[in-house]
Design a protein around this nucleic acid. Structure first.
Length: 762
DNA sequence: CTGGGCATTT
DNA sequence: AAATGCC
C-alpha cells in the first residue's frame, strides 16, 4: 500500500520532495517544458492552480437578485436541484437532489429555474477572461473545465516572482496547507508553491472584486492534485498541496469515482476487476490493467490513482461547438419536434451570431425513451451547412432560421421514420466546425490577403483565414472600429464573451531576464533568423502600406519579448499602453507617454517586504501591491480573501465593475481610432525594437496552443512580418490550430502560418 | 422524476 | 456517430 507514491518521491528524481525549488536552473524551461517533447522531463515542478467557483449558478442568481443571498436557494433544472447556495446546504439540500426531496427536506427552499444557461455562460467566460488578464504577461495558460472551473499553469509567474526577490521567497502560505499545520517547519520547503498560494489569493481577490464571485483555489504540482486539493476547504477558501502529502490526499478519497478522470463506466469496469478503492488501483498489477484497458489507458488510470498527472494545462479558447438542448418527458409528434427544433435553433442562432464564427455543420441529436438505461441512447445525424446559409447565420439574417429548421427536420427523419410512432425525451441542436469568417480590413492592404479564398482551400489556408477573421471580429466587437464594406453591422461588444475585454493588467515587475526560452524557440532561432521566411513575405508584409493603420491594440506584454527591452522603455510601454490600469479610472491618459507606472524595483521591494516579514506599518497584505496596479483603490486582501462578512453589496461591486469596463472600453476605442497617439509609440517600439506585433491581441494569443505561441514569438523575434499576422491574430479559437497541433507535421507551424498570409499569387 | 453543455477518443 | 467524461 502506498508503495507507489513512495516510489515516486524516492525515485532517483528526488526533486519532488526535498526542497530546492530554488535550485532550479533558470534556463531550464518553464511552462514550455511539458509541451516540449524534445527535452527530457524538466526537473522543474509545475505550479498549477485550480480555481473552482462556489455553487456557481446560485452565485450568479444571487448577484442578479441579492435578496436571494439570505434565503435557501436552489437552482432547478427540470426535476432536480443542480446546485444551491450555502444557506440551503446548511439545511440539508445537496447538489443533484430531486426537487421533491429537497422541498421535503427544506420547505422554505426558494427555487430559481436554471435551464437557460445564458447568464451562467456569460459569467463563466468573464471569469476565464479575468483569469487570462491576470496571467496575460506570463504566456497565460487557462483551461476551462465546465463553466465553473479553471486551471492555470502559473509556473512561469511563480518563477518570475522568485527571481524578483530571490532572497525573500515567501516563507508563508496564503490559506490552508493540506494536512499540515501552517506553523510546521516543513512548509517552508516549497517556496514555489508558497508563491503560488499568494498568486491564488490574489486571483481570488481579483475575481471577487471584479465580478463579485467567490471560489476555492487549489495549488499543487499537477492539474489532478490542484483540483483535488481545491475542495479541501469549501467555500471560498484555498489550499496548497505539498508533494509530501500526495499520498495522503489520494488515500483520503473514498472510492475510485472520486478520482477525476474515472467516470461511471471506468469505475464499473474497475470494480469488475475487484477494484473499489484508490489503493486497490494503485497496487493492481499493471499487466492485468492493460488487459482490460489497453496500455495507454491502463497506465493513465494507475497514474491517476497514484496522484501522478502530467497532462498539461491546455488553453481552452473559444468553444468548438455551440449547442442547445432540452429534455422532456415525452414528445411524439412531428409538429412538436418541429416547434422545439425551431426554438432551440432560434436561441442558438442568436449565440452563433454573437460569436461571429460561421458554423459549417449542423447536428441534431435525439434521445428516445427507453425504460431501461434511460440516459444513454442518444442518436445523432449531422450535415454540412451550405455556405449561403452559414453566412446568413453570422450576419444575423433571420432567414437562416427557417432554412436550418428544414435541414434539422431532414436530419430528424433520418433517425425517425415519418410514419412510425416515436417517443423522444430529448432534442439537441449543435453548430460545430466553427470557422472564423473571412472579412476584409478597412484600410489595410491586408484585405487582399484574405479576400480571395481559393475554392478548395487547404486546411492550412482556412486556418489562416480563421486568424484573419478572428482579428477582425475582435476589432469589431471590442471597439466598434469600422471594418470595411459589406461586412454586416457591428455586433456590439459581444465579439464573444470568451475573450477578456480589457487589456492585460500589469501587476508586477516585467521580466528582466530571459529564462523562458523554450528549447524549441532557442533552437529555431538561428535557423529562422537566416531563413526569414522568404524575404518575399517579409517584404510584402513589412512594407505593405496601411499596416500602421491597422489599429494597434494595447500591446501584448509578453515576457519573452518584453524583458528584452531596456527598462525605461518597458516602463514607457506600460504607462502608455495601460493608462487605465496604471493611473486608475480617473485619469484616462491615452495621451500620456510618461512612465507613471510604479518602478518595478519598487514593486519588487514591496513584494519583498510583504513576504519576508510584515513591516510594522504594513497594513496591506501581500497582494495589495499587485492589486493597486489595476484597481484605482487598493483592496485589502484580508477582507476579500477571508470570508466576506463585510462583503461588498452586489450593487457596489457591480457598479465598480461597470465603471471599470466602460472606462476601459472607451479608451480602447480611442486606441483603435487614433492609432498614433501614445500608442503609436508603443506599437512602433514593439514592432521595431522587439519584433512583437503591437496589434496582436494578447487574449487571442494566449488562447493559441502553447507550441504555436512559442513559434510565433520566435518568428516575431526574428522580425518576421508580424504586423499583418498580428492583426490577424485577434480572436482565434484554438480549434484550427489545435488540430494542427496534433498533426504529425512537426516542423514550424508558425512558418507555415506565415506563408498563408502571402497573397495567394495566382 | 438525472440537466444542459462542452470536450476527447475511437 | 457513438461513447465517455467532467461540471
Amino acid at each position: 500500500m502506498d508503495v507507489g507514491v513512495e516510489d515516486i518521491d524516492e525515485d532517483e528524481t528526488d526533486w519532488n520532495s526535498i526542497c530546492s525549488d530554488f535550485v532550479q536552473p533558470p534556463h531550464v524551461v518553464i511552462h514550455g517544458g511539458k509541451y516540449c517533447s524534445k527535452v527530457p522531463a524538466p526537473p522543474v515542478q509545475r505550479v498549477i492552480l485550480h480555481f473552482d467557483l462556489d455553487c456557481f449558478y446560485a452565485q450568479v442568481e444571487m448577484i442578479r437578485n441579492p435578496a436571494l443571498r439570505k434565503v435557501p436557494l436552489g437552482i432547478q433544472q427540470k426535476y432536480i436541484i443542480v446546485t444551491c447556495n450555502y444557506v440551503a446546504r446548511d439545511l440539508g439540500v445537496t447538489k443533484l437532489m430531486l426537487v421533491t426531496d429537497a422541498k421535503e427536506k427544506c420547505p422554505q427552499l426558494v427555487l430559481v429555474k436554471g435551464e437557460d444557461l445564458t447568464h451562467y455562460r456569460e459569467t463563466s467566460y468573464k471569469v476565464t477572461a479575468t483569469v487570462l488578464q491576470l496571467l496575460m504577461s506570463f504566456c497565460p495558460l487557462v483551461e476551462r473545465l465546465g463553466f465553473d472551473e479553471n486551471f492555470m499553469d502559473i509556473t512561469e509567474m511563480v518563477e518570475r516572482r522568485m527571481e524578483q526577490t530571490p532572497e525573500s521567497a515567501p516563507y508563508s502560505y496564503e490559506g490552508h496547507v493540506y494536512n499540515l499545520d501552517t506553523s510546521d517547519a516543513k512548509v517552508m520547503v516549497h517556496p514555489r508553491l508558497a508563491v503560488g498560494s499568494h498568486i491564488a489569493a490574489e486571483l481570488r481577490a481579483e475575481i471577487h472584486s471584479k465580478l463579485g464571485l467567490t471560489g476555492c483555489a487549489g495549488i499543487a504540482t499537477s492539474k489532478l492534485l490542484a483540483k483535488l486539493v481545491a475542495g479541501a476547504f469549501k467555500p471560498n477558501q484555498q489550499t496548497t498541496l505539498l508533494p509530501e502529502s500526495v499520498k495522503d490526499i489520494m488515500g483520503s478519497l473514498n472510492g475510485l469515482r472520486k478520482v477525476p478522470g474515472v467516470g461511471h463506466q471506468t469505475a464499473k469496469r474497475l470494480q469488475a476487476l475487484g477494484l473499489v478503492g484508490v489503493q486497490d488501483l494503485q497496487l493492481f498489477p499493471l499487466a492485468d490493467l492493460v488487459r482490460e484497458f489497453g496500455v495507454s489507458t491502463a497506465q493513465h488510470l494507475q497514474n491517476l490513482a497514484l496522484g501522478i498527472d502530467d497532462t498539461p494545462v491546455t488553453p481552452t479558447g473559444a468553444p468548438q461547438s455551440l449547442s442547445n438542448e432540452d429534455s422532456f418527458k415525452k414528445m411524439s409528434s412531428t409538429n412538436e419536434v418541429w416547434q422545439k427544433v425551431k426554438d432551440l435553433l432560434s436561441s442558438i442562432l442568436d449565440r452563433m451570431h454573437k460569436d461571429g464564427r460561421q458554423p459549417l455543420t449542423l447536428r441534431l441529436t435525439i434521445r428516445r425513451y427507453s425504460a431501461t438505461n434511460k440516459w444513454f441512447s442518444r442518436e445523432s445525424r449531422q450535415c454540412p451547412i451550405p455556405n449561403h446559409i452559414g453566412q446568413k447565420i453570422t450576419s444575423g439574417n433571420c432567414d437562416a432560421l427557417a432554412q436550418l429548421v428544414t435541414m434539422a427536420m431532414k436530419l430528424f427523419h433520418k433517425m425517425v421514420n415519418n410514419n412510425t410512432a416515436f417517443h423522444l425525451t430529448l432534442l439537441n441542436v449543435c453548430f460545430s466546425n466553427l470557422q472564423a469568417k473571412c472579412a476584409a480590413v478597412s484600410k489595410g492592404s491586408i484585405t487582399s490577403f484574405f479576400t480571395h479564398r481559393s475554392p478548395e482551400k487547404t486546411q492550412a489556408s482556412s486556418r489562416c483565414q480563421d486568424l484573419s477573421q478572428s482579428v477582425l471580429g475582435n476589432l469589431r466587437g471590442q471597439a466598434g472600429s469600422d471594418v470595411e464594406g459589406k461586412t454586416e453591422e457591428l455586433t456590439g461588444q459581444d465579439a464573444s464573451h470568451w475573450i477578456p475585454d480589457i487589456p492585460s493588467n500589469l501587476k508586477i515587475k516585467p521580466y528582466t531576464q530571459s529564462t523562458m526560452h523554450s528549447p524549441e524557440a532557442s533552437q529555431q532561432r538561428p535557423m529562422v533568423g537566416e531563413c526569414c521566411i522568404g524575404g518575399t513575405v517579409d517584404d510584402k508584409m513589412t512594407n505593405s502600406p496601411g499596416m500602421t493603420d491597422v489599429h494597434p491594440l494595447p500591446p501584448n506584454i509578453d515576457p519573452e519579448v518584453f524583458r528584452l527591452l531596456p527598462e525605461d522603455i518597458q516602463k514607457e510601454l506600460l504607462s502608455a499602453a495601460y493608462p487605465e490600469t496604471t493611473h486608475g479610472l480617473h485619469s484616462h491618459g491615452t495621451q500620456s507617454v510618461r512612465p507613471t507606472v510604479s518602478d518595478p524595483a519598487d514593486r519588487a521591494h514591496s513584494f519583498h517586504h510583504n513576504h519576508s516579514e510584515q513591516p510594522a506599518s504594513s497594513s496591506q497584505p501581500a497582494a495589495c501591491k499587485l492589486n493597486d496596479s489595476f484597481h484605482s483603490t487598493p483592496i485589502d486582501l484580508r477582507e476579500t480573501v477571508k470570508g466576506f462578512d463585510r462583503q461588498p453589496n452586489a450593487p457596489t461591486t457591480n457598479n465598480q465593475q461597470e465603471h471599470t469596463v466602460s472606462s476601459l472600453h472607451y479608451s480602447l476605442t480611442d486606441l483603435l481610432e487614433e492609432g498614433n497617439s501614445s500608442t503609436g509609440l508603443v506599437s512602433r517600439r514593439q514592432s521595431a525594437d522587439c519584433g512583437f506585433p503591437g496589434s496582436v491581441d494578447p487574449k487571442v494569443f494566449s488562447e493559441l496552443p502553447p507550441e504555436i505561441q512559442r513559434e510565433l514569438l520566435s518568428e516575431w523575434r526574428q522580425q518576421i512580418p508580424v504586423l499583418k499576422i498580428s492583426s490577424s491574430l485577434k480572436k482565434q479559437g484554438k480549434s484550427p490550430l489545435a488540430r494542427e497541433k496534433k498533426a504529425p507535421a512537426k516542423s514550424s507551424q508558425a512558418n507555415k502560418l506565415l506563408n498563408y498570409f502571402k497573397p495567394s499569387s495566382g
